[in-house]
Design a protein around this nucleic acid. Structure first.
Lengths: 224, 224
DNA sequence: GAATTCGATTACGTATACATTAAAAGGAGA
DNA sequence: TCTCCTTTTAATGTATACGTAATCGAATTC
């Protein structure tokens, strides 16, 4: 048991590693990288790297530009607006579907726990812990929604949100109001108020989007 | 000018061709295919085929199953429900955004034309022409919405809708009521009634989904 | 000095060779 | 006959070789 879930193939390893390098900024936005360079860095041949870049392109994290290397995608305000619009719709859908599904308090345990973790993180002003719990909350919400494609899309775009967040985390105020929304949504789902759940979450997401774009704008991120 | 947009690379050719083969049913749902088999059929080596299958897997048209070949995905009722849910949300978003964008009648020309083509197709009971115009209509709608990621997702899922449609087209009644919705949406966008546009389109999509799933069910498609 | 052409370089796209390992087939023993 | 183990097969995953075509720079021309 040296490494329980070490990737089975080099392609999978390249995918994980490159994704991580992009999310952490080790490969910075707007930078270009040749296939051969990445292959050397990852200690493998071009083949699995190439396959991974194709997938990452599909996930919107980079762009394959023949003979110019892959370009790590920038995080523009416009991009984040697009991503937030989509997350708003799909998560609101998930909220409504979760409410309609008639979950018990037991089923909603993970949701409640994530909310409590956010509370705790806020109390300690621990932005990183808050961000982790917030992400867990959103992931659990869409899981409860039960649409596997929504789950996939939301996970994919969460990667992009995480990149933007990494660039802004210290610049943002602690989102103290945010948990009121989370609790209201919890109640709506528990009482099977589908349209209420949808509205609450939509409002929540729109507020989050305004906050992020304002911060990105302050930080001088380009609009396009 | 023998073939204006012939793919520049074999990978692109494989992607186009395999996608088409899946959409037309030349590669039937649930069937398995080895990389080597597909390579031979397409007259190229395994490398570009392999790259194409990775992308097609990302698009949800097939599943790569190591040592068992790629499995062309079935069209289950559950899948279609998921896809329709997503299209409902994202197209409704696009409708609202299109209305908010304040387009002129000129800008909405393509939308109007698609509606008229559907009229004409209905008059002649030409289901194929109707389906083509309907797809053009939805594509134009999301284009007007202006969110490039929504455009991409909708196009991707339209492939899956097209597969289901191909299996049901002759079994469905002519959608004579459908154009009333299209006209109402056109008016809402022109008068910049964002929430009205959203609601009209949502209702439209929900009705379409009920129709399709009922037909699939009649045809004995498995739920999962 | 600017633009253009030619040539060298080099990154990519594709084919192919090879190692790996899951699956299938076959055989031995109960 | 059934089960378990061994052997074989074969499909994949990866590395590598190589042709092609785009790019960069130098030299030439205007």
């Amino acid at each position: 048991m040296t490494d329980p879930d070490r990737p089975k193939t080099s392609t999978a390893a390249a995918l994980n590693r490159l994704r991580e390098m992009i999310l952490t900024g080790e490969l910075s936005a707007q930078s270009d990288h040749l296939e051969a360079e990445l292959a050397t860095r990852l200690g493998m041949s071009r083949t699995p790297v190439r396959e991974a870049t194709l997938v990452l392109q599909g996930m919107g994290l980079l762009e394959v530009r023949p003979r110019k290397g892959v370009r790590i995608k920038p995080i523009t305000i416009r991009d984040m607006e697009e991503v937030y619009e989509i997350l708003t719709e799909l998560e609101s859908l998930a909220a409504a579907r979760a409410a309609a599904a008639g979950y018990s308090a037991d089923d909603l345990m993970a949701l409640k726990e994530a909310t409590e973790e956010m509370d705790a993180a806020l109390a300690q002003e621990d932005r990183a812990a808050w961000a982790a719990a917030d992400e867990a909350y959103h992931t659990e919400l869409v899981r409860l929604g039960g649409n596997s494609r929504v789950i996939g899309i939301v996970q994919m775009y969460n990667d992009q949100v995480r990149r933007a967040r990494a660039a802004t985390l210290d610049a943002r105020p602690l989102p103290t109001a945010s948990n009121a929304d989370h609790r209201a949504l919890y109640e709506a789902i528990l009482t099977r108020d589908a349209e209420g759940a949808r509205k609450i979450h939509r409002r929540h997401r729109i507020a989050a989007r305004k906050l992020l774009t304002a911060i990105l704008s302050d930080l001088g991120q380009p609009y396009v």
